[in-house]
Design a protein around this nucleic acid. Structure first.
Lengths: 338, 338
DNA sequence: ATCGTTCGTGGAATCGATTACACCGATACC
DNA sequence: GGTATCGGTGTAATCGATTCCACGAACGAT
């Protein structure tokens, strides 16, 4: 593959001049510029990004470490991150942690070794030493969706508290009183917060959240299935199951169906995270929708601000309730268009 | 960040010795080795992958350019590719082409600039000059899922012909005679092949595939919706719609529902590509399942073989039919467990 | 005519690694 | 005892870019 030397030789100038043309430095004669450009064209020359990065100490690359690519929420997040990064002149390398701290560390280490300019993380655990070191060492880091308390890093996330209150009010209005939740891992902020918000919302309606109605999940479909089975085996099963993410909701749906029960007639179901498929399930699932695309874009902007020396800002956007049919229907509502 | 020089100074040896220890070259004394290792530990030294790549002309990185990350099929493919690559000591950079040739080119160029060791592509179009140049220039390339005819590059893909025959036989046995297809873009091999296989299978059952029963889609949900509406407006609408991918099937489902019609009672639906969500839609959707994980792994193995100088092999694996309820039920079948 | 700028350019250092080559001391062999 | 061999080590070249510095030419001001 042609290097800058070949271009210089072909154009009859020095490598310095070629480099100046490539980085459109002002002091190059029009004459030299056209000769260099012609040589570039003739040789099909493309600058070696590796060499350039070594010299400039910039890779124009962002690392994104997410908890689970197979989760449509994170897929969409990854997509919006890549789009915004591209618009700002950066590439993105995605690392999938699969909700495993060891894999998360593997990817963080790998990205750091490649000298990415900044790191976008949705942490799987309470904070690996590796990541804390990276932050301390001055690597630009921004947390997205989840974060690690006590670490001084901008956070871009959705606040679901109001939406959860709306959901609980909706459920209460439909006559439901025994509400259960499938929680996410306690090591994640989203895992904790959603339970807290749910409990708080219940209190506001004068309801309790007994321990047996808190099932411990891990944000994967299987755990949703398992926890739901536990709920259904209870002497007094809940009337509603609220899953803290979309995959666990799917597992819950599965478990309910496997018993030959129907949603919402036998048990109601709601989920945190709205995804396109929830419109098409049987029944369509009531969910709390995050502004996923906006979160991804805001996270990239915060990170790039940090990288380029501007003060980065934390961002919190509201989530909102999307009512569908999985919790039953309001008697006052029009039922003609399901 | 500490460099190899700092380590050398700390350990009281030359950089050459440090490098030898790091690459466990045999001729280093035990004494020197332990001193270097101690220095590495003390400084928290990590080799700079950028500098290493420049020198060795290897990045230990694979590029993966896929047609659409939001499509669960490709998400799963990406995941299995990353897993296998990691097992073989490579990282993966994913580029999402979003079914757009210009974006595909952007990512291919970007990956080539970063001097990735090899490229895994599921081409969105008939072959951009850029990619053909790369192949000609000797860049290791492997096509996965889709390919470009006439280019001498290993292909890893699924053969759905038998599964399509099985599907058509299944539909025929259920009494369906008017079968339509939502095709993918003609510029993609999968877009063409699936129509051809469908037509061929119909012939085997003594049926025709009239032009009005071939709708042109683009592998995205919206096109499935649009094409299905067209089918339903026909004076004699089809009894079955077969979507050439999962997203278009979703659009089709949407269009059918919007008319207040029911699947499979009013119209049957089947799809190419099986995804976890098809189990939970209303009704569960009959689909042709590809061995996605296997495809991803085989593609990586082929590419790494090529990179490391072993002869790479093309791989074709069979797809298989998964019957669910979206095409109606066999009267002889047990209906108790839906 | 002389001096000081400005502009365009090339030489060479540099980034952080790998590795060919030279060297040195110790051992082995005749 | 002389020499070939070998293990361990350091020096320096190298990968492909960017960029500091010096230099020469052109030009305007005095």
């Amino acid at each position: 593959m042609a290097s800058i030397k070949d271009v210089a030789a072909e154009a009859g100038v020095s490598v310095a001049t070629v480099s100046r043309v490539l980085n459109d430095h002002p002091s190059v004669s029009a004459e030299a510029r056209t000769r260099v450009l012609a040589a570039v064209e003739a040789l099909g020359y493309r600058p070696n990004a590796v060499a350039r990065s070594l010299r400039t100490d910039q890779t124009h690359t962002l690392g994104l470490v997410i908890s689970d690519v197979m989760n449509p929420y994170f897929t969409e997040l990854a997509r919006s991150v890549e789009e915004e990064a591209r618009a700002l002149g950066y590439s993105v390398i995605i690392g999938n942690a699969d909700e495993r701290p060891d894999l998360q560390d593997h990817h963080v280490r790998n990205l750091l070794d490649r000298r990415i300019d900044g790191l976008l993380v949705s942490p799987t655990d309470g904070g690996s030493p590796l990541m804390l070191d990276a932050v301390r060492a001055g690597t630009p880091v921004v947390f997205v969706d989840r974060w690690i308390p006590g670490v001084d890093v901008p956070v871009v996330r959705a606040d679901g508290r109001q939406a959860v209150r709306d959901l609980v009010a909706h459920l209460h209005a439909l006559g439901h009183r025994r509400l259960a939740i499938i929680a996410g891992p306690a090591a994640t902020t989203t895992g904790q917060e959603r339970v807290a918000a749910f409990r708080e919302a219940l209190h506001a309606c004068g309801l309790e959240l007994p321990d047996v109605y808190i099932g411990q999940g891990d944000f994967q479909a299987d755990s949703g299935r398992r926890v739901t089975e536990g709920f259904l085996d209870l002497p007094e099963p809940p009337e509603v199951v609220f899953a803290a993410d979309n995959l666990m909701a799917l597992g819950a749906l599965d478990a309910v169906r496997a018993r030959g029960m129907r949603v919402p007639d036998d048990i109601a179901l709601a989920a945190f995270d709205d995804i396109p498929w929830f419109v098409h399930t049987d029944p369509p699932i009531t969910a709390i929708a995050q502004p996923t695309g906006e979160l991804g874009r805001a996270a990239v902007r915060a990170l790039v601000d940090r990288i380029e020396g501007r003060p980065p800002e934390s961002v919190t956007l509201p989530a909102r309730l999307v009512v569908r049919r999985s919790c039953g229907e309001d008697a006052t509502q029009n039922r003609s268009k399901p």
